[in-house]
């Protein structure tokens, strides 16, 4: 009798000790989309409050690293740039790498960094990492402006650069990069709520990872027999592909891209499950 009574009742929500690990609440995230936009706006406005140059800082940083890289890696070390002018080669690599690095860095501290808010109000926690991904993407778009200026300049100079057909896939590459950063970031943030060890490693780890990714050197720089090792890194195809799309040089094919997509989907799935598990009561252990 009790059963039938229950079935007639309509509850809009049931709070239970543990929810299904695959119950990702995408609908709820969609309902909070305004919050996502407002958080992006907050990050953007707040970061550059009381700076003179404002969003120009998004450009200044990669420009300076490009100059440094050009001097050290191209001029001093003499590492090949696949025949492309060194500044645009490094700037392109820097841009896409910087985007990934910001994504992972901003999401890897989501739980520990937002304790104050998370302990006072509920909203789908995923909104926070998603908003930082969007913020990083906006910075990426701003940096794109300088890339276009550089590209036109070098093209008119008669440098060996041309857009390839893969340029149409740039949005997809951006998505892969963003989601890879997000997945790794939420995995790190989920496993660091109790033991913080891993978060000590993040900054350093990203730096190490950059050297395992063809950012400051082209894939062709790696001897043929070791190339497969480099390409095990799911970031390598995206970075090389991005350069290939814009500069028209590089070692790249569609299979590599599919591999990256596969790894991204897998990591994202793992990340979502972990995040989903942790977000429910991390506040008790953080």
């Amino acid at each position: 009798m009790h059963e039938t009574e229950n079935s007639q009742e309509k509850w809009s929500e049931i709070i239970k000790p543990k929810r299904n690990l695959l119950d990702f609440h995408f609908k709820e995230i969609w309902r909070y989309r305004d919050l996502l936009i407002l958080l992006v706006r907050r990050d953007f406005v707040a970061t550059f409050k009381q700076t003179i140059l404002g969003p120009l800082w998004h450009i200044i940083n990669p420009v300076f690293s490009t100059i440094t890289f050009t001097i050290i890696f191209a001029n001093v070390a003499g590492i090949s740039t696949d025949g492309v002018p060194a500044p645009i080669f490094y700037y392109t690599g820097n841009m896409i790498w910087g985007y990934f690095s910001r994504c992972i860095q901003s999401t890897s501290g989501v739980f520990t960094g937002n304790q104050a808010i998370f302990s006072k109000v509920y909203f789908p926690r995923m909104i926070m990492p998603l908003s930082t991904i969007v913020t990083s993407f906006i910075a990426f778009l701003i940096q794109m402006v300088i890339l276009i200026v550089m590209w036109i300049y070098y093209y008119n100079q008669g440098a060996n650069i041309h857009l390839s057909a893969w340029a149409f896939m740039i949005p997809v590459m951006c998505l892969i990069m963003g989601f890879l950063g997000l997945s790794l970031g939420i995995i790190i943030s989920s496993v660091t709520t109790k033991y913080r060890d891993l978060s000590m490693f993040v900054g350093f780890g990203i730096q190490l990872l950059m050297y395992c990714t063809p950012v400051i050197y082209p894939v062709s720089f790696v001897p043929e027999q070791y190339r497969f090792l480099l390409l095990l890194n799911p970031l390598a195809p995206v970075v090389e592909g991005f350069k290939y799309s814009i500069l028209g040089v590089g070692t790249f094919d569609a299979n590599m891209m599919f591999y990256s997509v596969g790894v991204t989907v897998f990591l994202l799935f793992i990340g979502l499950i972990l995040f989903n598990k942790v977000e429910q009561n991390f506040i008790d252990t953080v």
Binding site: I15, P17, F118
Partner: peptide
């Protein structure tokens, strides 16, 4: 903000 250890809460 956190989950109960046991039991449930139904909200309408």
């Amino acid at each position: 903000i956190t989950t109960p250890t046991t039991g449930k809460i139904k909200v309408n």
